[in-house]
Design a protein around this nucleic acid. Structure first.
Lengths: 351, 351
DNA sequence: TCTGTTGCCGAAACCGGTTTCGGTAGATCA
DNA sequence: TGATCTACCGAAACCGGTTTCGGCAACAGA
């Protein structure tokens, strides 16, 4: 009893000039009365609110939807373990994004930020770097100076997908990429090319599509691929969502996914498990990613050098039903598709 | 120039003892140098951190997934408008939930809480009420004393779904309910009964199923309904997810949804738009709900009485392709299903 | 026994705001 | 012209912690 608040504070924070006896006494008393220092009272002196900032882009097509819960679970788990919390906000444009971050910084609602969906030229990075606010990227960047990051090796997944299709017997393998604004896009494209090189297939420009964001984009891209004179028998998708569009394209051309044409994608969204046939995909452990990002950001805020905070992890292949040995060769497949289209045309004329 | 910090504070906070001239001078100066009071420094005196707490349950089957982004967008929008922020955390059990809330309360990381998915007997309510922490429910509760809430009138949707099916010509209308742990479950059941009463149909116990959480549960429930001697021709689902399971059940019985059997559901999740045929459902404006909840909670924290903070809103019917006039009457449908099953059995024996 | 150390804790400054209190200048009124 | 009132602002206490500084007591060394 009868210790000054200063002594209590030092005892709780492990200062060396406190005897073990007093330290235990304080710890026990705090425990008994359920005392926890008010975070904002600490912050006024320490300058840290022990809070991670996360601003979600919500304008366009909702990019995080399926992953969000898992991601938040990972982040908050890791943050809680260090007694930190998470401040979430949303923005519907780049301007709004910067303003939102600015507000969180100025009022010190967050000590640093996790930046999901790294873009090629990212205004968030520009702003935060300029203002000396710590941050960590989910996804690598082209200009890495001063940046910490965590990323999944999507390019390896793309490469392995090509190799897998090749081993299943495919010799005409196409690639459908995501929107160009993201940094991972060119990496995945490179991974596709690496895969072709590894198995000794020549890259063909007409086998590559890009800027697929929604599943409808994926449908169009797939249809244009399958209507080529010599269509691909296997298609690698940079995202699950794009691949789900392929199901509609295949249906409208009278094709069966997994038999007539094989599909391998990337992300591991739940919808893939409900597709018919179930989508073979490279799944990302989003929860683990969130946890890594959170604890790395905390280290960064505590002063670790960004160069020491760069990690990558592999995606894990989930073999399901959308890929298999090709039923026909590419030329043969082309003829079948032409036949199907012709039949449909006749039938519609007949009506 | 040369005003004390006390004067500046009063000027910025609109105290009456500051002349307009000084007030403007201060406002302009603050604007110029981009000054924003540190939230935690204010909090130490005011006792408010201007932060809304939200703890998500993430253990079991992820209940919020599809709605989460929209919900967060609504909450953070409304919060930002009042210069508040959102503190998000997660929990994987009831115990963990209470501990997480406790931590946020003790450290004052949040001034109050939004409680999504109100349960019949909710431990969160017990804890917060006991500790005098403001909160608002997303969903009504059975014991309303001291509770503020916002809710969607799911029971009206269920009732209208029944009436709609009746007007389309259905006379055998079943109901598939959600998990019993949620409070909205019994409300929706009541809505179904109200609908039957309104059109003058007798409730039949064998036409009601419950405890459907995942789409697989919905498949089983639907199959058991359709295997009745006199199956329903129309089915109302308390959740979209359950209704998606009906698609598989119908397929396995050789039935076509929207023709042989009609389905109307509730939630408005994106997957419903991709189902074949597209799911007719009562859609909830989750973003608006989040916004209402946030601004009502802020009012609550500022001292408004909980009794004055109770709002409801209707769900909006999205007519798509899963409902229509019944192709057969109920008895006839039963015969067709029996025939299909028999055929399948023969065919399997034949193999 | 005296002098340095050391270990340990109290006292007080400090962080950046908010809020209370008191005093002064100018206006109002008798 | 003097007294009273009012509008306005400065000064200082305060919020709940952290951190610095200084001093006392015990202990070691000479």
């Amino acid at each position: 009893m009868g210790l000054t608040k200063g002594t209590v504070s030092r005892a709780l924070n492990g200062y060396p000039d406190i005897s073990d006896r007093t330290r235990h006494r304080v710890a026990r008393a705090a425990e008994e009365m359920g005392y926890r220092p008010l975070a904002h009272a600490q912050a006024i002196r320490t300058g840290r609110v022990r809070s991670i900032g996360l601003v979600l882009q919500v304008n366009e097509h909702d990019a995080h939807g399926p992953f969000l819960t898992e991601f938040l679970a990972g982040v908050t788990r890791a943050a809680s373990a260090e007694n930190w919390t998470l401040a979430v906000s949303t923005a519907d444009s780049d301007r709004d994004m910067i303003e939102t971050i600015e507000r969180l910084v100025n009022e010190r609602k967050a000590d640093g930020f996790i930046l999901p969906r790294t873009r090629s030229d990212d205004p968030r990075v520009t702003y935060l770097r300029e203002h000396g606010v710590p941050f960590i990227l989910f996804g690598r960047t082209r200009v890495p100076a001063g940046c910490a990051w965590f990323d999944i090796l999507g390019e390896h997944a793309m490469r392995d997908a090509v190799v897998r299709l090749y081993r299943l017997g495919h010799r005409a393998i196409a690639f459908v990429n995501a929107g160009e604004e993201y940094n991972f896009t060119r990496l995945r494209h490179q991974g596709y090319l690496d895969g072709l090189a590894q198995v000794g297939l020549h890259p063909r420009e007409e086998y590559v599509r890009g800027n697929v964001r929604k599943s409808e984009d994926g449908r169009r891209a797939t249809e244009s691929l399958l209507r080529l004179p010599v269509p691909p028998t296997g298609i690698v998708f940079a995202t699950d969502e794009g691949a789900l569009g392929a199901y509609n394209a295949a249906r409208s051309l009278g094709l069966e996914i997994g038999r007539d044409v094989s599909v391998i994608a990337y992300d591991g969204i739940p919808e893939g498990k409900y597709a018919q046939p179930r989508l073979t995909t490279f799944s990302v452990d989003t929860r683990a990613a969130g946890a890594s990002l959170a604890s790395m950001l905390i280290q960064r805020i505590r002063g670790a050098a960004p160069e020491d905070l760069r990690q990558t992890a592999p995606a894990q292949l989930m073999v399901r039903g959308s890929d298999g040995a090709p039923r026909y060769g590419a030329e043969e497949l082309g003829h079948r598709i032409a036949g199907n289209l012709n039949f449909r045309k006749q039938w519609e004329k007949h009506k």
